[in-house]
Computed example of a mutant assay.
Amino acid sequence: MFSLLNTLVEKNKKYGREGKVASYIPALSEANPDELGIYVVDSRGKEYYSGDYNAKFTIQSISKIVSLILAIRDNGRENVFKKVDVEPTGMGFNSIVNLEASDSGKPYNPMINAGAIVTTSLIDGKDVNEKLEKILEFMRTVTNNDDISVNERVYLSEKETGNRNRALAYFMKSTGVLDGDVEEILDLYFKQCSIEVTARDLARFGAVLANDGVIPWTNEKFIPKDVCRIVKTIMVTCGMYDASGDFAVKVGIPAKSGVGGGILATVPRKFGIGIYGPSLDEKGNSIAGINIITDLANELDLSIF
């Protein structure tokens, strides 16, 4: 496996030059587009890696998996999906048209910004700090990394430039979809997106999902099996922004990307995969990351279909 990963990193690094790092959040524009790393954790907890797997970056939209899991835990499946649908969308992850076009007024799914703002609002806690600590503790457990924390600089950059997310949130507040203090909800959302991780952290999280919620290195049942299945299903249909259908056809495994350059993928009962490559394609997905995971899935016949 190490030899294969080394080969795939070397083969796919070149694609970083074909994309661009995210710049609409100023702090993300400093990333090195040539970086590429991959980490794989199997169902028994054995780990394989290559490239820039220890480079730190912010989780961004991959945090939407976390807020969905915690929202379901705190409110139950039915109550969450009264507020957000589970349907794919062919529009951008921060589209306002999505909300206006929705017959129900609800966001199309929890993997676009509007949907994630709703699931974040459903996390229990007396204030932003308590809710954030809940998110961080969850992340520290599923990654076996007690050092998981928020990158303050990225958080402040997101907060300063997050006007599109404010527009989405206030629109949903006006239609009754979003309950609570909008600015507090957004503050928590900006903070959860600014959690700093590595490809190793994402792979370990993916391995827990692959094991139906059982942590491979402790055998603890940490996430309910039915919640894992819901999350993995939505990852297949909606996890790669409006390129999710193409990714499902070419790769065929549940995955979630973030504009920080991360991809978290999970192969049921086999692997958790974490990838970092900050250069993005026009859809907002890691361009080298898409190429390397496509090669890996083909090489190891990982498609679930």
Rank of each mutant, 00 (worst) to 15 (best):
G239P: 05
T120D: 09
A255C: 13
V97I: 15
L280C: 07
N165D: 05
G180E: 08
E130T: 06
V231A: 08
I72H: 02
R166Y: 02
Q60A: 13
S3M: 12
S244C: 10
K46F: 14
F93Q: 00
G274W: 02
L28K: 05
I62H: 00
A297P: 09
N32F: 12
F138Y: 10
L178F: 09
G45M: 09
P268D: 04
N54L: 15
V41F: 08
L5V: 05
K131E: 03
V97A: 15
K134V: 01
L132Y: 10
Y39I: 00
D226K: 07
R200A: 15
G213N: 02
F171A: 03
K131V: 02
S303N: 14
E35D: 14
G274A: 13
I62C: 06
I292R: 09
L209R: 05
S149D: 08
L296Q: 02
V154C: 05
K82S: 13
R140L: 06
M139F: 13
L4F: 11
F190I: 10
F305I: 12
V182D: 06
M172K: 03
F171K: 00
T233R: 07
D85I: 09
A116G: 05
I215D: 08
V118Q: 08
R73C: 02
R73Q: 14
K159I: 12
D42Q: 01
C193P: 07
R229H: 12
A114G: 01
G162D: 00
I38H: 09
R204V: 04
I69Q: 01
G258D: 04
V249A: 00
A114M: 05
R200L: 13
V142F: 06
I96S: 00
V86E: 09
L264E: 04
R204P: 00
G92I: 10
G180L: 10
A31F: 15
E30V: 15
C228Y: 06
K191M: 13
A255W: 11
D147T: 03
N113H: 03
L8W: 04
L99D: 07
L136S: 02
S257G: 14
L209G: 09
Y155H: 08
S23I: 14
E152H: 10
I253Q: 08
V66W: 06
G277H: 09
S95K: 03
D201F: 03
G51Q: 01
S121Q: 01
P224N: 00
F271E: 02
V118F: 02
A101F: 15
N54Y: 15
K82D: 12
C228H: 05
E299N: 12
I123G: 04
G261V: 11
N211Q: 06
V236T: 08
E184C: 07
K173G: 09
S149V: 10
T198D: 08
V66I: 12
D124G: 04
E47P: 07
I273A: 06
D85S: 13
V251Q: 05
N165W: 09
R153Y: 15
F305W: 11
P224Q: 07
K14C: 06
K173F: 03
N54T: 15
Y241I: 06
I38N: 07
L132E: 03
S257D: 12
M139A: 11
E299A: 15
L168G: 07
L132T: 07
I287Q: 09
V150C: 05
D52L: 11
F205Q: 08
D187K: 12
G176F: 05
L264G: 01
L186T: 10
